[in-house]
Design a protein around this nucleic acid. Structure first.
Length: 120
DNA sequence: CGTATGACGAGCC
DNA sequence: AGGCTCGCCATAC
């Protein structure tokens, strides 16, 4: 059982997946959530709705110093999930651009080009 | 122990 | 296209 209330284990699962996203590609909170096996003790429909939020919670607590490429996680619309204009959003955009990822006029990444297919 | 807040996303207008 | 609502959780004070 690794979903909350066993949050710590869930978080580590999330970080393991993020670690596998290669440079130049992005993934989304929902996609990462779908890569984690469901907890049998929890209602699947309910889990589908809440898991992406928990991934967001996990990302908020991402440990520094472990080289976790946190910036490669954006939302399902191809947008950075920090408030536009915030220091964090600017930082994330800069890091992605360094990896060759372009943003359109509305600040969106072309997911067709850059979405990560998943672990081998 | 109450209260506020949050790196989501699908479904509806 | 864009602004709701919901889900009803985990964390930080």
């Amino acid at each position: 059982m690794f979903y909350p209330p066993n949050a710590k284990s869930f978080f580590e699962k999330v970080w393991d997946i993020v670690l596998q996203i290669p440079a130049g590609r992005v993934s989304s909170y929902g996609q990462i959530a779908s890569m984690i096996p469901p907890d049998e003790a929890m209602d699947p429909a309910q889990m589908r709705r809440l898991a992406p939020r928990w991934v967001g919670t996990a990302m908020r607590k991402t440990p520094r110093g472990k080289s976790i490429p946190w910036h490669r996680v954006i939302n399902s619309q191809g947008r950075i999930s920090f408030p536009a204009g915030s220091a964090q959003a600017d930082c994330q955009r800069r890091l992605l651009e360094q990896e060759g990822i372009a943003f359109d006029d509305s600040g969106k990444v072309n997911l067709r080009l850059h979405a990560w297919a998943g672990p081998d």
